[in-house]
Structure formats: structure tokens, C-alpha cells
């Protein structure tokens, strides 16, 4: 336990000193501010671009559009930025050799993996919370009338998918030596999830539904209860993968 808290402190310090925390927070803050703004400005930009010849009626932007932007940006760019930033989670310390000294002095390998995972989840939680808060604040400011259904639940699903993606990243980091290998396996896992999603029967059990069903949830076209199974599966898979990463890292030749 002391191992764990000490290494966690070191991880937090590392993210601050390497500016990874700053970049994560800034990227998500910028997304948070621009989501409602883009929703508001897009119809106006289109109107400016339209010439006399083609007339198209554009609906007024609503709070729903702002949240559409939020879920699009967070599930695409947000997750990509996160995975790229965290891709060196194990490989950077292993290639520099700074971890070896501590491990030979008795730091437990389980503590290393668990504290690294905790720290990644922590950074991801703070970032998504910041993005959500900013989008929420500005959406209320720009579109006071708008009410959006299932907002918190939908964001929770997105957060859970991020947590799942991080554990896949951690597992691939223990399997490979370089951060490119880690990126490759994580990307491959995401692609496999998307391919499996083509089968309609698998949709309910596929973790990626957590990141693709958000828009359906906030427009009320997907029932909340249809995702319970996915949430359970994602939690179980996350636990299993954490367990596997610990096992693999304990056996790994450094």
C-alpha cells in the first residue's frame, strides 16, 4: 500500500512535469468552450456561404446541437489525444531504464501497474469533467431554453468507455516494448470493437456502444436500460484486463 501511494505521487508529479496534464486539460477545455460556439455559429456560417441561387432553410441551433458537438469531439479527438498522450505510459520508463532501479530495490510490480492505471483514470476523469462543465455552462448561456435528456448518464457512458480504453492501453503497454506497438494494439482493439458492432446482436454487449450510442441517448431514441448490459460487460472486461496486465507485467522480462 505504501508502495502504491508513493508511486502514485510520482506519477502525478510526472504528468505535471512533462506537461501532459496541462495539454490534456487545455485540449479538453478548448473543446468545452468551442462545442456550444460551433453549434451556434455553424448555421450562420452556412448562411453566409450560401449564394442567391440555392436557398436552404436552416433550423435554429439548439442545446441538442451543442451536445452533439460535445459527444462528437470527445469521442473522436478527445479519445485520440488521450491515447497518444498516454501511449508511453510504460515504454518511456522502461526504455530509459529508470524503472529498473526501483523494481530491483523492492518496489512491487503490482503497485506500479495499479498506480499507473489509477493516475491515467484520474487525469481522464478530471479532463472529461472539465470539458463537460464548460460545455454545460456555455450551453446554458447560449441556449437557455434547451433541455437535454439523459445527459449525465450519456456522459457517464463516455467516461466508462474512456476507462475501458485506458485499460486496453495498459494491457497493450505490458505486451509490447515500444509506444508505437502500444498505440497499434489499442487502435486494433478499437477497430475490432467497431467491426463487431456491425453484427446487430453483438451491439448490446459491445463496449464501444458506450461511445457510439451517446447521441441516441440524449435524443431519447435509445433507452437507458438497453445499455445496462454493456456497462456490466465493460466493467467486467476492465477488471479482467487490469488483472491480466498485472499478471503479464509480473512475468515480464525487463
Amino acid at each position: 500500500m505504501r508502495n502504491y501511494s508513493a508511486f502514485l505521487k510520482k506519477e502525478v508529479l510526472e504528468y505535471t512535469k512533462t506537461y501532459k496534464l496541462l495539454i490534456m486539460l487545455m485540449v479538453f477545455a478548448v473543446f468545452g468552450i468551442t462545442n456550444p460556439l460551433m453549434a451556434k455559429l455553424l448555421p450562420e456560417i452556412l448562411r453566409k456561404l450560401m449564394t442567391d441561387g440555392n436557398i436552404m432553410t436552416l433550423p435554429e441551433a439548439t442545446a441538442y446541437d451543442a451536445w452533439t458537438q460535445f459527444f462528437k469531439n470527445a469521442t473522436q479527438m478527445g479519445l485520440i489525444v488521450m491515447v497518444i498522450l498516454f501511449s508511453g505510459v510504460l515504454s518511456s520508463e522502461l526504455s530509459k531504464g529508470t524503472l529498473i532501479n526501483m523494481l530491483t530495490k523492492g518496489l512491487s510490480r503490482t503497485a506500479v501497474i495499479l498506480s499507473k492505471y489509477t493516475c491515467m483514470v484520474l487525469v481522464w476523469t478530471i479532463s472529461i469533467a472539465l470539458c463537460f462543465a464548460l460545455t454545460y455552462g456555455y450551453t446554458v448561456y447560449l441556449f437557455p431554453a434547451g433541455e437535454t435528456a439523459n445527459l449525465i448518464f450519456s456522459t457517464f457512458c463516455l467516461w466508462l468507455f474512456g476507462v475501458f480504453l485506458l485499460v486496453v492501453l495498459l494491457l497493450s503497454a505490458t505486451l509490447t516494448k515500444s509506444n508505437y506497438g502500444c498505440l497499434l494494439i489499442t487502435g486494433a482493439a478499437a477497430v475490432v470493437c467497431m467491426l463487431v458492432n456491425i453484427i446487430p446482436a453483438a451491439h448490446r454487449y459491445n463496449p464501444i456502444s458506450l461511445a457510439t450510442d451517446n447521441l441516441g441517448l440524449i435524443s431519447n431514441s435509445i433507452a437507458v436500460s438497453s445499455l445496462y448490459c454493456t456497462i456490466l460487460i465493460s466493467c467486467l472486461l476492465s477488471l479482467l484486463f487490469v488483472f491480466l496486465s498485472v499478471l503479464i507485467f509480473r512475468k515480464k522480462q525487463l
Partner: peptide
């Protein structure tokens, strides 16, 4: 009208830019 959006964005960009420049 868009000043409440522009100010935080400008601050964020300046904060990032200056931290990076110092580094």
C-alpha cells in the same frame, strides 16, 4: 456577443504558448 467565448480561449492559448515558449 462572443466576448465570453473569446476571452477564455485567448487566455488558454496564451497560457499554453507562453509555457511552451519558456520551455
Amino acid at each position: 456577443e462572443y466576448l465570453p467565448f473569446l476571452i477564455p480561449l485567448v487566455i488558454a492559448q496564451l497560457a499554453l504558448g507562453i509555457t511552451a515558449l519558456v520551455h
